[in-house]
Design a protein around this nucleic acid. Structure first.
Lengths: 252, 252
DNA sequence: AATTGCCTACTGGTCTGACCAGTTATTTTT
DNA sequence: AAAAATAACTGGTCAGACCAGTAGGCAATT
């Protein structure tokens, strides 16, 4: 294994196994380099790896610090997966929904038009588990349902764009689910909308599918605006980090 | 922001928003260093960051590769998962246009609704240089005009998505310009459409702007389909690398 | 005495150019 | 033609230099 990766592994263990607590300062790069007997370049590469994994934060002139679990805490500008400027500011949520409105609509349209039997089968499956699952405990089915439709559009670019926004989308979906579902009528309305989307796609009615899907996103957006204006704080369920653990196996 | 992080961000965008599909090979470190105008050390740090984030995998002597979505299917073959069709095959062009149809429409809608006087000024300026320039020699004005409108939408997510597709968009725009403009009537029609979009935005007529902008993209798309079916080879002007030049100034 | 301000010794950030180590295609040799 | 040597890639590592923020101390000024 490459030394840099070995180092990053050792440093991570050092942190995880109790040596260093969150927020604590790590030794300087030059110190680490000396102590671990490698060049500073290697140390820096290893640190960047941990940085990418969200384990540490580095500040120019100060040093590297073990990342705090919850970035929220302070003024401490933190980076989300990739699009940090979108730090959960409410605006972003609606900006995103504004786009989802278009894209999900188009996806539904294309799905209704182009879906193969396999696609339809996938969508049906996703829809089924959507009905069974309690939306409060698990937002995934919701996302999966939408995802299945998007994939049925057979437009790789569309799949790709939406996939790129997946993290943010998951956030909004979870947020909406967490906030909207407690309200009985809301939950029913959304369920009905899902059903109608599902039916339109299955029936191969592009225009209808588009209209309904667009309206669905719009509805969610509007509903959240209402809620928010009533002074109810929007619950933002953090997306669980899709970190490491998959990386380990690759050198087997 | 640190350059290494900027680079890692740009590389990730390149992967996510554009050219590189899972399993695909990335340019060599030395190439990247040259093209992006930074040292190889920086490139390596950036790559390690992406590695930590699970975006890429690196193999000694071979290169770095965009990580496959499914880590399970080990094996060694360098086959492609699913989304390989990205490679500039004609499909992508129309897939892209399908999305631009929606996004440009929405952008125009929002621009007409939210544009400030400053925005309007910018758009006017872009429109002016659009009329003056010969579209055959320079596709930039076309892109700038659309860009100005997008930015006037005041939706950062929208800006980001479209910006991420910039490379591909530039490609399509250039392709369309190169193919469509030689035909006199085409050029006129497109010019007229641009004018109508411009007017709608300036007049703050969201619905109209949206309708026209959508139709515009649709028109271009259809026109290219026609041409292509007539056996005329689509000219794909290679995107001139959007490299360096912004990076240059930092060592001043 | 209190403040200002500079100097210094940290810290991370970047660059350069070198060399080692796998991989692969080409060319030479058998 | 098959095998072996080679050349030209790729990433991995190193050394030492210099730039750029940060923080603490110490001196000059107020």
């Amino acid at each position: 294994m490459a030394i840099a990766q070995d180092i990053s592994y050792r440093l991570e263990r050092l942190i995880l196994d109790g040596g260093l607590a969150p927020g604590q300062k790590m030794p300087s790069e030059r110190q680490l380099a000396t102590r671990l007997g490698v060049s500073r370049a290697i140390i820096r590469e290893a640190l960047h790896e941990l940085q990418g994994r969200g384990v540490i934060e580095t500040k120019h002139g100060k040093g590297s610090f073990v990342a705090r679990i919850v970035p929220g805490g302070e003024e401490d500008g933190d980076d989300s997966p990739l699009l940090q400027m979108f730090n959960g500011h409410a605006r972003t949520l609606y900006d995103l929904l504004e786009i989802r409105e278009q894209l999900e609509g188009q996806a539904a349209y294309l799905a209704a038009k182009r879906a193969t039997t396999l696609d339809l089968h996938r969508i049906t499956k996703a829809y089924a588990s959507l009905e069974q699952t309690d939306p409060l405990t698990n937002a995934r089915p919701d996302h999966n349902f939408h995802q299945a439709i998007v994939e049925a559009s057979h437009n790789p670019v569309l799949v790709h764009v939406l996939n790129g926004l997946k993290n943010l989308m998951l956030l909004t979906v979870q947020a909406s689910v967490a906030n909207l579902n407690p309200r009985e009528e809301m939950r029913n309305k959304i369920a009905r909308q899902h059903k109608r989307i599902y039916q339109a796609v299955m029936a191969k009615k592009p225009e209808a599918a588009k209209r309904i899907a667009t309206a669905h996103v719009r509805f969610v957006s509007d509903a959240m605006r209402d809620i928010e204006q009533q002074g109810v704080t929007i619950i933002r369920v953090p997306v669980n980090a899709p970190t490491a653990k998959t990386v380990v196996s690759q050198n087997a």
